[in-house]
Nucleic acid binder design. Structure first.
Lengths: 195, 195, 195, 195
DNA sequence: GATGAATGAGTATTCATTCAT
DNA sequence: CATGAATGAATACTCATTCAT
């Protein structure tokens, strides 16, 4: 972002922009997503848009970031509190599905239409590092002292498999299907308990 | 595609266009991918391009289709010939990894930058149907007569999980890592053998 | 220029653009000079404009270049043919005044409003080098073997003084005044004949 | 200017703005010269800027005016005190060169990039009138009662020739070269003493 | 008087696509 | 069939200027 909104007036402006953008992206897709249209929908002048966002991409990134923050928040809490492993899996899967259920249309656009920044799925990225660290802790807590591959290798495979199942279900609009949740849980448990 | 290339000269033209497009997409990314540039790189006039492709999207789809055909081919053969289940998994995973290793740069672009047609991951799409059917057969062959979720539900989860692991590894450039293959095999086996 | 106009159709296009630009610059000044307006006035689409000119500045440069070519042409011929010095001066001054009389409004805009390229009055520039060389020859032919400053130093002062007199007269619209010509000739002769 | 700064605080504000503007123009050129940037560099809000300057052009004019005032000051004193003609020329040329040596980068921008007001080199303009009057007096004092063109015609030619030599030297960065000064003096003397 | 958030008209430039030759 | 000159709708982004606080 070009400039941090300090006063409450500007905070509202930024909020309105992000919300309008989410709506437009959801409803019209990437093709209908123009900075002028976003500003208008937000009830804000195009000039105000560029006070806070240096360009078009940075708005997409801001939206993506909010989603990533949600995911990270879930990961941080899902591992807390010494629950039994079975519960751990159910909570994690449930949370991730819940997060991706908020704006179903948005995810398809974000995944398949909007261009991604360089940092997307880049292991050097700060978010990716912390996200993976959460998974690593979670894996360590789950598997106990069983042998085999490193926590990190398992964390990556697990994270990517869940990512694939959840995102593709979101694309198909079947994220609410109970079968998806049940089977995903079964998948995770089976993998975690294998040798 | 606008018209099927019947003569051999036409076939060569189409081939040249698709190859040039693949190269440009790989090297310059979606941003550098313009129809005029593709035509020039293919040694063809822009007018000729539009003889064979009705628009820009159809070229992307043609490229994607080649990849999907590869995947389908693998799925068709991977399930053949009454191999033992353990072998079945190894062959499948190995083939999918091999397919995605051909143009590493291209996949990242296709996944994260290029827009997808409506048919992408659409269950109504002919490719999706056949692809899923392969998985279903494969699942049926593997699991035997165990109870639980339907073959279809399992096939979808499995396909999506593999998709997630393989595509994210391709994005990171770690597709050749042996840990990816080993763990992916373990994931599939564990899931297939669970209750 | 982005691309040389090879066919006669495209040559006409480029010509129409440059002419329309000259007219607009002359009539509306730099403020009214937009690429879209130029294209429209030239009876050409904005797309055609950008086939031949990479940006807005390059069109200004093209116009300036034509003027510089005129000046250079004059300098090349003004020194030819062993005329007596007195005649030399009169021909030179007359030609320069004539060149600047073609589009009186244009010069004021080009000088005082339009941005100049890096090469403007840059001694490293090819045009500047050749232009100065002409002046040097001319000075050498005029002064004979008199001592004093180098031909080059004299050429620069002379060129700059003429430049100042002619351009300021053009700005004021007094270029046609016979006093300007008479006195400029007197200035040049006096300088050339001084010790 | 919108209003004369009467209090000392206001004077300081105006001063800070003009100085910041000079610096920015010098360092970043006309392209980097924006009212917001100038205000920020001056440590003043953009709102305050518009208290003192009605628009952007007036700031440029203020900067130019300071330079013109310098020139006029020089002209006023250069002609005083019954010096011998030879001394007169040397003082005049020396002063003009000195004035243009203060901000070399600024002059190139002011001459070649910044747009000029309608008053620029406009004979109706008060500055132009007074400046020319100085030159006329100076010419009259120098030439004595020799015949020929009017004092005014000579004054214009002289002023423009000096303008050309000095400004072009400033553009090239050769204003400090002693040859420029020597030859310019020689040019003026030769012209004044001819016929 | 001072502030700085907000404004919005204005413009250069791209690139998929057409069609006369 | 091939060519490539021409098209023009569409859009990101700037920056001088205003005015509510």
């Amino acid at each position: 972002m070009r400039k941090a909104p300090s006063q409450s007036r500007s905070k509202a402006t930024v909020e309105a922009i992000v919300e309008a953008a989410t709506r437009i992206l959801s409803d019209l897709g990437w093709a209908g997503f123009t900075t002028n249209k976003v500003a208008e929908a937000a009830g804000v002048s195009i000039g105000s848009y560029y006070q806070y966002f240096p360009d078009k991409l940075s708005l997409i990134e801001a939206i993506r970031q909010r989603h990533l923050d949600d995911c990270l928040g879930t990961m941080r809490t899902a591992g807390e509190g010494g629950k039994p492993p079975a519960q751990l899996v159910e909570d994690l899967v449930g949370s991730i599905i819940a997060i991706h259920s908020h704006h179903p249309g948005l995810h398809r656009v974000l995944l398949d239409e909007a261009p991604s920044a360089e940092t997307f799925r880049n292991p050097e990225d700060a978010f990716e590092k912390e996200y993976l660290a959460c998974y690593r802790n979670w894996v360590a807590a789950y598997r106990g002292s069983r042998g085999g591959a490193s926590d990190e290798a398992i964390a990556i495979i697990l994270s990517d498999a869940i990512d694939g199942v959840v995102h593709n279900a979101a694309r198909r609009g079947t994220l609410q299907s109970s079968a998806v949740k049940t089977e995903l849980i079964r998948l995770v448990r089976a993998y975690m308990e294998s040798s």
